[in-house]
Nucleic acid binder design. Structure first.
Lengths: 243, 243
DNA sequence: CGGCATCTTGAAAGAATTCAAGGCTTGTGG
DNA sequence: CCACAAGCCTTGAATTCTTTCAAGATGCCG
């Protein structure tokens, strides 16, 4: 098992050029622009992150776990969810490469949510600037506040907006922007990807039943907007007339 | 009109002991503990806010307005919403006394949302720690990051959770905690309030039709959980047996 | 090649939405 | 202070949609 995860880490790091050691400075990492899109010119914040891997199905944290600090997902997908008193699982976020999770727990000493890896995942842990006795990194609060602002600005747009088909399409396009590979087939641009989450989880995220998500995807296929085979999915650009 | 708002300001400031002048330091304001519940012991952040009044129906900001900085609502209610491409109004937040709004706009130079006063409103404007050339207030980023963290932790719990009656009840209780006056009638504790928003706006917030909100409130009344007369509303504590 | 979880589809039941119309509040102006 | 008008609230009935229930198909991992 230990061997297995080492193999995975090497494989992943080869595929994504991720430096396979701990204690990396973001400004020397090739992924800096993706993980810190907010950094403006002249921002000299030096962030040193601790890297770690999580295997598919394992938890990054669970309720009552001690808060270590926010995490940036480097590869794979992390599902953040809570379990209601009635036992329902409400999915709050699917964190994709570049996404920052755990901001909601900065103020607490214990987590309140579940964060589970849907894939084999590589992560970078950011120091918590609000922790007591933490070594203060100049500018880190400012950087994270900027990030939180952007999250508040964009996260709210992802809720269900009535009709399932439109919501699912919006969701798939969002995932495609992070995970998709762009290709051209028959002169038509398309984004190919493999969905990390089940239809049931998409439903729990958008607030629909599993079957409703299925039927929405089918409707999108009938409209020629996607091609589906299980979790393998292509988003098709609607054909446009020459301009 | 100008006279009218002055009268309003005096009236409001009498009722809430709000210092009726500009440039107030939060640590000398009687509302500090409500506006900054996150401030820990030893937090010496000195925040000087600019106070201003907005009349019912007027906008604090609209899309494309320049961003001046986040705002704490001191009295009244501010509705934050966006207008979709189809013309639908999605309500994102009803900001009640003590609530901080505008965090989502920190990173931008222009607003993307509408913020409209549903009441006559008094506000305090916080300096924007992310603005270029802003006078840096030590600890302000840290304080706002803490606040953003709490917003991310709690805001997500307010979405619709399936059944309209339960969602509306949860919503009414939330409003009651901020605006309600606690009283006892017939030995039963109850929270009285006047709703600042219409049924239609509640629906736009929770994702239901106006009529569905009406019927949900009616159902709550039939269950003995509330008493309603238009926007005047009492939340009734269910009678408990002696313990 | 199983075995299990996931995905898909159909039919029936249940809910919210829509459409329509009447009653009630509230604020304004006389 | 009263009357009026506009917006808001309420209710009913029909429609539309999602959900639920059930069962079969598919895909994936060991």
């Amino acid at each position: 098992m230990r061997a297995a995860i080492n193999v995975f880490m090497v494989a992943v790091s080869r595929r994504t050029a991720f430096p396979p050691h701990h204690g990396v400075e973001c400004r020397r990492c090739p992924c800096q622009s993706r993980c810190w899109p907010d950094a403006g010119a002249g921002d000299e914040t030096q962030i040193e992150v601790g890297q770690f891997a999580v295997r598919s199905g394992d938890f990054l944290w669970r309720p009552a776990d001690a808060v270590a600090g926010p995490v940036i997902v480097h590869s794979g997908c992390v599902m953040v969810y809570r379990v209601s008193s009635t036992g329902d699982e409400d999915v709050l976020q699917f964190a994709l490469p570049g996404d920052l999770i755990g901001l909601e727990a900065l103020a607490s000493s214990r987590h309140a949510l579940h964060a589970r890896a849907l894939d084999d995942v590589l992560c970078c842990r950011i120091p918590n600037p609000l922790a007591d006795g933490a070594t203060q990194i100049p500018g880190l609060s400012r950087r994270l506040l900027l990030r939180a602002s952007n999250i508040l600005a964009h996260d709210r747009f992802r809720a269900r907006h009535g009709d399932p088909t439109g919501s699912v399409l919006e969701f798939l396009r969002h995932v495609g922007q992070h995970l998709g590979r762009v290709g051209t087939i028959d002169g038509r641009r398309q984004v190919q990807m493999r969905l990390p989450m089940s239809r049931l989880d998409i439903g729990r995220y958008l607030g629909f039943a599993e079957e409703t998500v299925c039927r929405a995807i089918r409707r999108l296929e009938e409209q020629g907007l996607v091609e589906v085979r299980g979790r393998q999915l292509s988003l098709l650009e609607p054909a446009r007339r020459a301009s």
